[in-house]
Design a protein around this nucleic acid. Structure first.
Lengths: 192, 192
DNA sequence: CCAACTATACCGACCGGACGGTTGACAAAC
DNA sequence: GTTTGTCAACCGTCCGGTCGGTATAGTTGG
Protein backbone atom coordinates (compact mmCIF):
# COMPACT_ATOMS: atom_id res chain seq x y z
CA UNK A 1 0.00 0.00 0.00
CA UNK A 2 2.28 2.76 1.23
CA UNK A 3 3.65 4.40 -1.92
CA UNK A 4 6.77 2.81 -3.30
CA UNK A 5 9.22 5.60 -2.75
CA UNK A 6 12.02 3.77 -4.44
CA UNK A 7 12.18 3.52 -8.20
CA UNK A 8 13.06 6.76 -9.91
CA UNK A 9 11.72 8.81 -7.03
CA UNK A 10 14.52 10.92 -5.55
CA UNK A 11 13.34 10.64 -1.96
CA UNK A 12 14.98 12.75 0.70
CA UNK A 13 18.23 11.52 2.16
CA UNK A 14 16.95 10.04 5.44
CA UNK A 15 14.43 7.94 3.56
CA UNK A 16 17.00 6.85 1.04
CA UNK A 17 19.31 5.87 3.86
CA UNK A 18 16.65 3.83 5.61
CA UNK A 19 15.75 2.11 2.36
CA UNK A 20 19.38 1.36 1.69
CA UNK A 21 19.96 -0.09 5.15
CA UNK A 22 16.90 -2.24 4.81
CA UNK A 23 17.96 -3.44 1.39
CA UNK A 24 21.40 -4.40 2.63
CA UNK A 25 20.10 -6.43 5.53
CA UNK A 26 17.62 -8.20 3.29
CA UNK A 27 20.22 -8.97 0.69
CA UNK A 28 23.26 -9.82 2.75
CA UNK A 29 22.22 -10.26 6.35
CA UNK A 30 22.58 -8.33 9.55
CA UNK A 31 26.33 -8.66 9.70
CA UNK A 32 26.76 -6.83 6.41
CA UNK A 33 25.03 -3.69 7.54
CA UNK A 34 27.78 -1.16 8.12
CA UNK A 35 27.51 2.57 8.04
CA UNK A 36 29.76 2.75 5.03
CA UNK A 37 27.78 0.20 3.08
CA UNK A 38 24.49 1.88 3.89
CA UNK A 39 25.88 5.26 2.94
CA UNK A 40 27.25 3.99 -0.34
CA UNK A 41 23.99 2.28 -1.24
CA UNK A 42 22.04 5.40 -0.38
CA UNK A 43 24.32 7.51 -2.52
CA UNK A 44 25.73 9.60 0.29
CA UNK A 45 29.00 9.61 2.13
CA UNK A 46 29.44 8.16 5.55
CA UNK A 47 29.58 11.65 6.98
CA UNK A 48 26.34 12.46 5.24
CA UNK A 49 24.67 9.46 6.79
CA UNK A 50 25.88 10.36 10.24
CA UNK A 51 24.48 13.81 9.79
CA UNK A 52 20.97 12.34 9.64
CA UNK A 53 21.48 9.41 11.98
CA UNK A 54 23.98 10.26 14.64
CA UNK A 55 24.92 6.66 15.36
CA UNK A 56 24.33 3.18 14.15
CA UNK A 57 21.88 2.71 16.95
CA UNK A 58 19.95 5.76 15.80
CA UNK A 59 19.83 4.32 12.31
CA UNK A 60 18.42 1.04 13.54
CA UNK A 61 15.97 2.85 15.76
CA UNK A 62 14.75 4.83 12.79
CA UNK A 63 14.43 1.67 10.77
CA UNK A 64 12.41 -0.04 13.44
CA UNK A 65 10.17 2.90 14.12
CA UNK A 66 9.30 3.07 10.47
CA UNK A 67 8.58 -0.63 10.45
CA UNK A 68 6.43 -0.55 13.57
CA UNK A 69 4.42 2.24 12.04
CA UNK A 70 3.98 0.28 8.86
CA UNK A 71 2.92 -2.88 10.68
CA UNK A 72 0.39 -1.03 12.78
CA UNK A 73 -1.08 0.54 9.67
CA UNK A 74 -1.16 -2.80 7.92
CA UNK A 75 -3.02 -4.29 10.85
CA UNK A 76 -5.61 -1.53 10.96
CA UNK A 77 -6.16 -1.83 7.25
CA UNK A 78 -6.55 -5.56 7.38
CA UNK A 79 -9.03 -5.14 10.18
CA UNK A 80 -11.10 -2.73 8.16
CA UNK A 81 -11.41 -5.29 5.38
CA UNK A 82 -13.27 -7.72 7.65
CA UNK A 83 -16.95 -7.43 8.41
CA UNK A 84 -17.41 -6.40 12.02
CA UNK A 85 -18.62 -8.76 14.69
CA UNK A 86 -17.08 -11.39 16.93
CA UNK A 87 -13.80 -12.72 15.60
CA UNK A 88 -13.11 -9.76 13.40
CA UNK A 89 -9.56 -9.44 14.65
CA UNK A 90 -8.90 -13.15 14.36
CA UNK A 91 -10.28 -13.19 10.85
CA UNK A 92 -8.06 -10.31 9.88
CA UNK A 93 -5.04 -12.18 11.19
CA UNK A 94 -5.96 -15.33 9.35
CA UNK A 95 -6.38 -13.34 6.19
CA UNK A 96 -3.01 -11.74 6.73
CA UNK A 97 -1.16 -14.98 7.30
CA UNK A 98 -2.95 -17.45 5.11
CA UNK A 99 -5.00 -15.75 2.44
CA UNK A 100 -2.56 -13.20 1.15
CA UNK A 101 -0.75 -14.06 -2.03
CA UNK A 102 2.59 -15.69 -1.41
CA UNK A 103 4.37 -12.73 -2.89
CA UNK A 104 2.63 -10.14 -0.76
CA UNK A 105 3.14 -12.23 2.33
CA UNK A 106 6.80 -12.85 1.59
CA UNK A 107 7.43 -9.22 0.90
CA UNK A 108 5.95 -8.16 4.22
CA UNK A 109 7.68 -10.93 6.14
CA UNK A 110 11.09 -10.38 4.68
CA UNK A 111 10.97 -6.68 5.15
CA UNK A 112 9.87 -6.96 8.74
CA UNK A 113 12.32 -9.73 9.45
CA UNK A 114 15.28 -7.79 8.18
CA UNK A 115 14.57 -4.76 10.28
CA UNK A 116 13.59 -6.85 13.22
CA UNK A 117 16.73 -8.93 13.35
CA UNK A 118 19.01 -6.01 12.69
CA UNK A 119 17.51 -3.99 15.50
CA UNK A 120 17.53 -6.93 17.87
CA UNK A 121 21.15 -7.62 17.17
CA UNK A 122 22.11 -4.04 17.89
CA UNK A 123 20.09 -3.82 21.10
CA UNK A 124 17.02 -5.81 22.10
CA UNK A 125 15.57 -2.70 23.67
CA UNK A 126 15.20 -1.22 20.20
CA UNK A 127 12.26 -3.55 19.68
CA UNK A 128 10.19 -1.59 22.18
CA UNK A 129 8.12 0.26 19.58
CA UNK A 130 7.29 -3.06 18.00
CA UNK A 131 6.39 -4.52 21.35
CA UNK A 132 3.96 -1.68 21.84
CA UNK A 133 2.27 -2.42 18.54
CA UNK A 134 2.01 -6.09 19.42
CA UNK A 135 0.62 -5.33 22.85
CA UNK A 136 -2.04 -3.31 21.11
CA UNK A 137 -2.83 -6.27 18.87
CA UNK A 138 -3.09 -8.56 21.85
CA UNK A 139 -5.61 -6.25 23.44
CA UNK A 140 -7.63 -6.28 20.26
CA UNK A 141 -7.54 -10.06 20.23
CA UNK A 142 -8.63 -10.28 23.85
CA UNK A 143 -11.63 -8.09 23.11
CA UNK A 144 -12.57 -9.96 19.99
CA UNK A 145 -15.63 -11.72 21.38
CA UNK A 146 -14.29 -15.19 20.71
CA UNK A 147 -13.90 -18.10 23.09
CA UNK A 148 -10.95 -17.19 25.31
CA UNK A 149 -7.77 -18.58 23.84
CA UNK A 150 -9.06 -18.97 20.31
CA UNK A 151 -7.86 -15.59 19.15
CA UNK A 152 -4.57 -16.00 20.92
CA UNK A 153 -4.07 -19.38 19.31
CA UNK A 154 -4.66 -17.89 15.89
CA UNK A 155 -2.32 -15.03 16.57
CA UNK A 156 0.36 -17.37 17.85
CA UNK A 157 -0.01 -19.57 14.78
CA UNK A 158 0.47 -16.62 12.48
CA UNK A 159 3.48 -15.57 14.51
CA UNK A 160 4.84 -19.06 14.09
CA UNK A 161 4.51 -18.88 10.33
CA UNK A 162 6.22 -15.54 10.44
CA UNK A 163 9.13 -16.95 12.37
CA UNK A 164 9.39 -19.98 10.13
CA UNK A 165 9.73 -17.65 7.19
CA UNK A 166 12.20 -15.33 8.92
CA UNK A 167 14.61 -18.14 9.57
CA UNK A 168 13.79 -20.15 6.48
CA UNK A 169 12.71 -23.08 8.61
CA UNK A 170 9.82 -24.17 6.45
CA UNK A 171 7.15 -22.83 4.15
CA UNK A 172 3.67 -24.16 3.69
CA UNK A 173 2.54 -25.42 0.34
CA UNK A 174 -0.70 -23.97 -0.94
CA UNK A 175 -2.75 -27.02 0.08
CA UNK A 176 -1.18 -26.83 3.52
CA UNK A 177 -2.09 -23.21 3.86
CA UNK A 178 -5.62 -24.03 2.86
CA UNK A 179 -5.80 -26.88 5.34
CA UNK A 180 -4.47 -24.76 8.16
CA UNK A 181 -6.94 -22.05 7.28
CA UNK A 182 -9.77 -24.55 7.53
CA UNK A 183 -8.54 -25.96 10.83
CA UNK A 184 -8.12 -22.58 12.44
CA UNK A 185 -11.47 -21.51 11.01
CA UNK A 186 -13.12 -23.89 13.46
CA UNK A 187 -11.85 -21.73 16.29
CA UNK A 188 -13.87 -18.80 14.96
CA UNK A 189 -17.19 -20.33 15.95
CA UNK A 190 -18.37 -18.64 19.15
CA UNK A 191 -18.25 -21.77 21.27
CA UNK A 192 -16.57 -24.28 18.97
CA UNK B 1 17.10 -34.86 31.74
CA UNK B 2 20.51 -34.97 30.14
CA UNK B 3 23.02 -34.99 33.00
CA UNK B 4 24.11 -31.57 34.12
CA UNK B 5 27.74 -31.67 33.26
CA UNK B 6 28.35 -28.23 34.63
CA UNK B 7 28.69 -27.66 38.33
CA UNK B 8 31.88 -29.01 39.78
CA UNK B 9 32.26 -31.41 36.88
CA UNK B 10 35.45 -30.66 34.95
CA UNK B 11 34.08 -31.41 31.52
CA UNK B 12 36.45 -31.68 28.61
CA UNK B 13 37.58 -28.51 26.93
CA UNK B 14 35.33 -28.56 23.86
CA UNK B 15 32.25 -28.97 26.03
CA UNK B 16 33.38 -26.23 28.37
CA UNK B 17 33.91 -23.95 25.41
CA UNK B 18 30.47 -24.62 24.00
CA UNK B 19 28.91 -24.04 27.40
CA UNK B 20 30.82 -20.81 27.77
CA UNK B 21 29.81 -19.52 24.35
CA UNK B 22 26.20 -20.35 25.06
CA UNK B 23 26.32 -18.63 28.41
CA UNK B 24 27.79 -15.49 26.92
CA UNK B 25 25.16 -15.21 24.24
CA UNK B 26 22.40 -15.77 26.76
CA UNK B 27 23.80 -13.25 29.16
CA UNK B 28 25.00 -10.49 26.89
CA UNK B 29 23.67 -11.08 23.42
CA UNK B 30 25.05 -12.23 20.14
CA UNK B 31 27.26 -9.21 19.67
CA UNK B 32 29.22 -10.00 22.82
CA UNK B 33 30.31 -13.40 21.69
CA UNK B 34 33.96 -13.07 20.78
CA UNK B 35 36.54 -15.79 20.68
CA UNK B 36 38.47 -14.18 23.47
CA UNK B 37 35.46 -13.87 25.71
CA UNK B 38 34.42 -17.45 25.10
CA UNK B 39 37.93 -18.66 25.74
CA UNK B 40 38.24 -16.72 28.97
CA UNK B 41 34.88 -17.94 30.23
CA UNK B 42 35.80 -21.51 29.38
CA UNK B 43 39.10 -21.19 31.19
CA UNK B 44 41.30 -21.65 28.15
CA UNK B 45 43.31 -19.29 26.03
CA UNK B 46 42.21 -18.06 22.66
CA UNK B 47 44.73 -20.33 21.09
CA UNK B 48 43.33 -23.22 23.03
CA UNK B 49 39.86 -22.45 21.82
CA UNK B 50 41.00 -22.27 18.23
CA UNK B 51 42.68 -25.58 18.65
CA UNK B 52 39.30 -27.22 19.19
CA UNK B 53 37.21 -24.97 16.96
CA UNK B 54 39.23 -23.77 14.03
CA UNK B 55 37.12 -20.68 13.41
CA UNK B 56 34.26 -18.76 14.86
CA UNK B 57 32.01 -20.36 12.33
CA UNK B 58 33.11 -23.78 13.48
CA UNK B 59 32.31 -22.79 17.03
CA UNK B 60 28.81 -21.70 16.10
CA UNK B 61 28.32 -24.81 14.02
CA UNK B 62 29.27 -26.93 16.99
CA UNK B 63 26.90 -24.99 19.16
CA UNK B 64 24.03 -25.46 16.77
CA UNK B 65 24.67 -29.12 16.18
CA UNK B 66 24.56 -29.77 19.86
CA UNK B 67 21.33 -27.83 20.13
CA UNK B 68 19.69 -29.59 17.20
CA UNK B 69 20.57 -32.87 18.78
CA UNK B 70 19.09 -31.80 22.07
CA UNK B 71 15.89 -30.55 20.48
CA UNK B 72 15.41 -33.74 18.54
CA UNK B 73 15.87 -35.76 21.69
CA UNK B 74 13.48 -33.53 23.58
CA UNK B 75 10.90 -34.06 20.88
CA UNK B 76 11.23 -37.82 20.89
CA UNK B 77 10.98 -37.89 24.64
CA UNK B 78 7.90 -35.70 24.69
CA UNK B 79 6.35 -37.96 22.11
CA UNK B 80 6.97 -41.02 24.21
CA UNK B 81 5.07 -39.44 27.09
CA UNK B 82 1.86 -39.30 25.10
CA UNK B 83 -0.45 -42.27 24.67
CA UNK B 84 -0.29 -43.45 21.08
CA UNK B 85 -3.09 -42.89 18.61
CA UNK B 86 -4.23 -40.07 16.35
CA UNK B 87 -2.96 -36.70 17.42
CA UNK B 88 -0.10 -38.06 19.45
CA UNK B 89 2.39 -35.66 17.88
CA UNK B 90 0.07 -32.70 18.24
CA UNK B 91 -0.57 -33.56 21.86
CA UNK B 92 3.14 -33.76 22.52
CA UNK B 93 3.63 -30.35 21.01
CA UNK B 94 0.83 -28.86 23.05
CA UNK B 95 2.31 -30.34 26.16
CA UNK B 96 5.69 -28.92 25.28
CA UNK B 97 4.46 -25.43 24.65
CA UNK B 98 1.62 -25.02 27.10
CA UNK B 99 1.78 -27.57 29.86
CA UNK B 100 5.41 -27.42 30.83
CA UNK B 101 6.27 -25.36 33.87
CA UNK B 102 7.18 -21.81 33.02
CA UNK B 103 10.70 -22.38 34.23
CA UNK B 104 11.31 -25.49 32.17
CA UNK B 105 9.82 -23.84 29.11
CA UNK B 106 11.83 -20.67 29.55
CA UNK B 107 15.02 -22.58 30.06
CA UNK B 108 14.54 -24.52 26.84
CA UNK B 109 13.43 -21.48 24.90
CA UNK B 110 16.23 -19.23 26.02
CA UNK B 111 18.85 -21.79 25.42
CA UNK B 112 17.61 -22.57 21.95
CA UNK B 113 17.10 -18.93 21.15
CA UNK B 114 20.60 -17.93 22.07
CA UNK B 115 22.22 -20.57 19.92
CA UNK B 116 19.74 -20.04 17.17
CA UNK B 117 20.25 -16.32 16.84
CA UNK B 118 24.00 -16.52 17.18
CA UNK B 119 24.26 -19.11 14.44
CA UNK B 120 21.87 -17.25 12.20
CA UNK B 121 23.81 -14.08 12.61
CA UNK B 122 27.04 -15.76 11.64
CA UNK B 123 25.60 -17.52 8.63
CA UNK B 124 21.99 -18.54 7.99
CA UNK B 125 23.21 -21.76 6.44
CA UNK B 126 24.38 -22.87 9.86
CA UNK B 127 20.74 -23.50 10.74
CA UNK B 128 20.60 -26.43 8.35
CA UNK B 129 20.86 -29.12 11.03
CA UNK B 130 17.98 -27.46 12.82
CA UNK B 131 16.00 -27.30 9.61
CA UNK B 132 16.46 -31.01 9.23
CA UNK B 133 15.09 -31.65 12.69
CA UNK B 134 12.11 -29.43 11.98
CA UNK B 135 11.45 -31.12 8.66
CA UNK B 136 11.35 -34.37 10.56
CA UNK B 137 8.81 -32.91 12.96
CA UNK B 138 6.67 -31.71 10.09
CA UNK B 139 6.60 -35.19 8.66
CA UNK B 140 5.52 -36.55 12.00
CA UNK B 141 2.77 -33.96 12.16
CA UNK B 142 1.55 -34.78 8.68
CA UNK B 143 1.27 -38.46 9.59
CA UNK B 144 -0.47 -37.77 12.87
CA UNK B 145 -3.93 -38.94 11.82
CA UNK B 146 -5.57 -35.61 12.47
CA UNK B 147 -7.68 -33.48 10.18
CA UNK B 148 -5.27 -31.96 7.68
CA UNK B 149 -4.08 -28.61 8.92
CA UNK B 150 -4.91 -29.16 12.56
CA UNK B 151 -1.50 -30.48 13.48
CA UNK B 152 0.23 -27.82 11.44
CA UNK B 153 -1.83 -25.14 13.13
CA UNK B 154 -0.81 -26.43 16.53
CA UNK B 155 2.84 -26.63 15.54
CA UNK B 156 2.74 -23.11 14.12
CA UNK B 157 1.11 -21.80 17.28
CA UNK B 158 3.84 -23.32 19.43
CA UNK B 159 6.43 -21.86 17.10
CA UNK B 160 4.77 -18.50 17.54
CA UNK B 161 5.01 -18.71 21.30
CA UNK B 162 8.64 -19.66 20.91
CA UNK B 163 9.33 -16.63 18.80
CA UNK B 164 7.44 -14.33 21.12
CA UNK B 165 9.65 -15.52 23.92
CA UNK B 166 12.87 -15.28 21.91
CA UNK B 167 12.31 -11.65 21.16
CA UNK B 168 10.55 -10.79 24.39
CA UNK B 169 7.46 -9.74 22.48
CA UNK B 170 4.93 -11.10 24.93
CA UNK B 171 4.37 -13.90 27.38
CA UNK B 172 1.12 -15.58 28.19
CA UNK B 173 -0.29 -15.46 31.68
CA UNK B 174 -1.23 -18.78 33.17
CA UNK B 175 -4.94 -18.32 32.45
CA UNK B 176 -4.07 -17.40 28.89
CA UNK B 177 -2.00 -20.51 28.50
CA UNK B 178 -4.87 -22.55 29.83
CA UNK B 179 -7.32 -20.88 27.48
CA UNK B 180 -5.11 -21.43 24.47
CA UNK B 181 -4.65 -25.03 25.46
CA UNK B 182 -8.41 -25.47 25.55
CA UNK B 183 -8.93 -23.75 22.23
CA UNK B 184 -6.27 -25.75 20.45
CA UNK B 185 -7.55 -28.90 22.13
CA UNK B 186 -10.62 -28.65 19.94
CA UNK B 187 -8.44 -29.26 16.93
CA UNK B 188 -7.48 -32.66 18.28
CA UNK B 189 -10.90 -34.18 17.65
CA UNK B 190 -10.67 -36.28 14.50
CA UNK B 191 -13.15 -34.20 12.53
CA UNK B 192 -13.71 -31.20 14.80
C1' DC C 1 66.37 -47.76 31.16
C1' DC C 2 66.92 -44.01 28.41
C1' DA C 3 67.28 -40.99 24.59
C1' DA C 4 65.11 -39.33 20.47
C1' DC C 5 61.05 -38.39 18.31
C1' DT C 6 56.13 -37.48 17.65
C1' DA C 7 51.47 -36.19 18.74
C1' DT C 8 48.26 -33.84 21.53
C1' DA C 9 46.65 -29.95 23.93
C1' DC C 10 47.34 -25.47 24.89
C1' DC C 11 49.32 -20.75 25.24
C1' DG C 12 49.65 -15.65 24.29
C1' DA C 13 51.77 -12.17 21.44
C1' DC C 14 50.97 -10.28 17.27
C1' DC C 15 48.84 -8.75 12.64
C1' DG C 16 45.74 -6.92 9.41
C1' DG C 17 41.57 -5.36 8.42
C1' DA C 18 37.15 -3.52 9.38
C1' DC C 19 34.13 -0.56 11.58
C1' DG C 20 31.98 3.19 14.31
C1' DG C 21 32.62 7.61 15.01
C1' DT C 22 35.25 12.46 14.78
C1' DT C 23 36.87 16.47 12.52
C1' DG C 24 37.45 20.24 9.60
C1' DA C 25 36.35 21.98 5.34
C1' DC C 26 33.10 23.44 1.78
C1' DA C 27 29.15 24.86 -0.88
C1' DA C 28 24.54 26.14 -1.46
C1' DA C 29 20.25 28.22 0.83
C1' DC C 30 18.09 31.43 3.45
C1' DG D 1 26.67 35.23 7.53
C1' DT D 2 24.88 31.71 9.58
C1' DT D 3 22.44 27.51 9.06
C1' DT D 4 21.94 23.17 6.51
C1' DG D 5 23.57 19.34 4.10
C1' DT D 6 27.45 16.96 2.49
C1' DC D 7 32.05 15.35 1.94
C1' DA D 8 36.63 12.89 2.52
C1' DA D 9 40.29 11.86 5.40
C1' DC D 10 41.47 10.18 9.57
C1' DC D 11 41.62 7.77 14.33
C1' DG D 12 41.21 4.29 17.92
C1' DT D 13 39.41 0.13 18.95
C1' DC D 14 38.19 -4.32 18.58
C1' DC D 15 38.17 -8.82 16.74
C1' DG D 16 39.11 -12.97 13.97
C1' DG D 17 42.77 -15.51 12.79
C1' DT D 18 47.97 -16.71 12.50
C1' DC D 19 52.14 -18.30 14.40
C1' DG D 20 55.96 -19.70 17.03
C1' DG D 21 56.51 -21.78 21.13
C1' DT D 22 55.77 -25.02 25.43
C1' DA D 23 54.56 -28.96 28.33
C1' DT D 24 53.05 -33.46 28.79
C1' DA D 25 52.24 -38.13 27.28
C1' DG D 26 53.08 -41.81 24.47
C1' DT D 27 56.15 -44.50 21.21
C1' DT D 28 60.09 -46.37 19.43
C1' DG D 29 64.95 -47.95 18.97
C1' DG D 30 69.15 -49.12 21.07
Amino acid sequence: MIPATETAAPADAPTRILDAAEAIVRRAGVASLTLEAAAREAGVSKGGLLYHFASKEALLAGLLNRMAHFVAEDFTQGLACQPPGPGQVARAMLAWGLELSQEAMNERCDRAAAVFLAAFHQDPALLDPMRAVIAHMREAVAADGLAPGAGMAIMAAMDGLFMARIFGLYTLTDPERQAMRTALGHLLEPLA
